[in-house]
Design a protein around this nucleic acid. Structure first.
Length: 475
RNA sequence: GCUCCCUUCGUCUAGCGGUUAGGACGCCGGCCUCUCACGUCGGUAACAGGGGUUCGAACCCCCUAGGGAGCGCCA
């Protein structure tokens, strides 16, 4: 096992592979990552796959893919708990030998009945210690339970919540080995965190109630507990619990929807944490400024609008060549091969301020690569009218005379301007009909850039189509 | 039901006994302008409720209400 000196900060992200990496898990991973990086420590990835029934290889892959996409690189792992069963079993046997754990053969029916009785008495359902002092046949089916202290108080000193005391009387003897011989979560997590030298356990606050049990097991094993930080959960847009039913929760789904990893990371770090009024954080700034003890205690709701705003910020301010690379697959998805048209980087530079996602960016840029099918109804009705005919006709004549090498934004700007002057109208009077003719809708980058990107041939072709449309409409 | 956690604009948050309760997203409006967008300027909007403590509470204490988690041979 990898070891770290006692002073080295070591954090871990320990998802169970029973689903995709969702935004809540991603934020927990981010916080763990940042805490380790900030302190020059290590970040470990551990797959908690002891639930043989529900763990899948697809989930493992989805989690790894999500981590990679977000750029949350880990120093060690992924470790798989299923590969460490011998270790867990040795520990359990040791606990058994020392009398810190015991065999229990209580049948399910007895447990169910016990539980019902306790609920009826308004008590917290818990194991009554029936087998605590019984001799159970090791050869017959049984589970192993941890012998939890019956009195006293366990204190969780949480970096986020502060001091949270639990009475041992509230805890029961939990199962640490199933009847099929496999170890359970509360045992494996403790053994692994100790073996892997984890100094800071950062996880969802749904684990807060488990922590006193884990501390008890840890102490029975002769270890001192690590520091804990229980981060609040993330709620959906509507304030309800985040689940598969509430929009795209998988991190990969955000990639597919056209979000940039830096935008999602930036959004996530600000969910429950802040640094004054700062909204934009590079990963480097996050590492420098993030402090786990400053994380909010309350749950927060995921707000897609704000994520979209950040995403647009990063599309607009990121390196256009990189954005173009990321945009490529989204163009492909709508059937466009960017090599058959203007340089994609130039298109990104022209369009970046207009898109909140790469999907949008692809959609509004399609006109640069292929002719559109139909005009936007409102735009055509407003701009492709007989009064626009002469302007378009003059533009066509002017464009036809232009050499390919003069087909530049500057040259085009002058050409359009001249036509407006000849007609004695504002630039908008000729530019808007032209825009609708070229793009199919009323919105695009400035007209000269638009024409430049579309190119001379397509421009002439589309103007001809617009003239025909106007004539047909007048007839 | 029991145990634990949480509660500032619609949302994310600042605040750490004395503030006109600040910023951001969204929304609304102005400006810029060939369109849309960007940008920019301005506006809307919050301390869950009730008791204390204090000269003075968003900040400290208690209660209530509301929300959440756990109570598994799931993690």
């Amino acid at each position: 096992m990898p070891e770290g000196s006692p002073m080295t900060v070591r954090t871990r992200f320990a998802p169970s592979p029973t689903g995709y990496l969702h935004v809540g898990g991603a934020r927990t991973a981010l916080f763990s990552y940042l805490h380790a990086r900030k302190h020059g420590g290590q970040f470990v990835l551990r797959i908690e796959d002891t639930d043989l029934e529900r763990s899948t290889a697809e989930s493992v892959n989805a989690i790894l893919e999500g981590m990679t996409w977000l750029g949350l690189d880990y120093d060690e792992g992924p470790f798989y708990q299923t590969e460490r069963f011998d270790r867990y079993n040795a520990i359990i046997d040791e606990l058994l030998e020392k009398g810190l754990a015991y065999r229990c053969d209580c049948p399910k029916e007895r447990l169910d009945e016990l539980r019902d009785r306790q609920m009826a008495q308004r008590l917290k359902p818990r194991y009554d210690g029936h087998c605590r002092h019984r001799e159970v046949d090791p050869g017959a089916p049984h589970v192993i339970r941890f012998r939890n202290p019956t009195d006293g108080v366990v204190v969780v000193n949480d970096l986020i919540r502060g001091r949270v005391p639990f009475g041992n009387a509230e805890l029961d003897d939990l199962i640490i080995r199933r009847s099929d011989g496999s170890p359970t979560y509360n045992l494996t997590v403790v053994v692994d965190d100790a073996d892997m030298g984890i100094t800071h356990v950062i996880r969802g606050d749904d684990h807060l109630n488990n922590t006193p049990r884990q501390i008890n097991i840890l102490r029975a094993l002769g270890h001192e507990p690590p520091s804990y930080a229980h981060v609040p959960m993330i709620l959906g847009d509507d304030g309800a619990r985040l689940s598969k039913r509430h929009g795209a929760v998988s991190v990969i789904a955000y990639r597919e929807a056209g979000y940039l990893p830096e935008a999602l990371l930036n959004y996530l770090v600000r969910l429950g944490w802040s640094h004054g009024d700062q909204e934009i954080f590079s990963l480097q700034e996050m590492i420098e400024l993030f402090d786990i003890t400053e994380v909010n205690r309350a749950a927060s709701s995921f707000n897609t609008d704000k994520l979209a705003w950040l995403n647009q910020h990063y599309i607009q301010h990121g390196d256009p060549r990189r954005i173009a690379q990321l945009l490529r697959p989204h163009m492909g998805r709508i059937g466009i091969d960017p090599s058959e048209g203007p340089d994609l980087t130039a298109v990104v530079e022209a369009q970046a301020a207009r898109a909140k996602t790469l999907v949008e960016l692809a959609e509004i840029s399609a006109f640069c690569y292929r002719d559109f099918d139909d005009y936007d109804e409102a735009a055509a009705k407003k701009h492709l009218r007989p009064v626009a005919r002469e302007g378009l006709d003059r533009l066509r004549a002017a464009f036809e005379l232009m050499a390919y090498e003069d087909w530049t934004p500057e040259g085009l700007h002058h050409a359009v301007e001249r036509v407006a002057e000849e007609l004695g109208v504002n630039l908008g009077k000729v530019a808007q009909p032209l825009r609708v003719a070229i793009v199919g809708r009323a919105a695009s980058p400035c007209i000269d850039l638009t024409l430049h990107l579309v190119g001379k041939d397509a421009t002439l072709r589309r103007i001809a189509k617009a003239l025909a449309y106007i004539d047909q409409r007048a007839a």
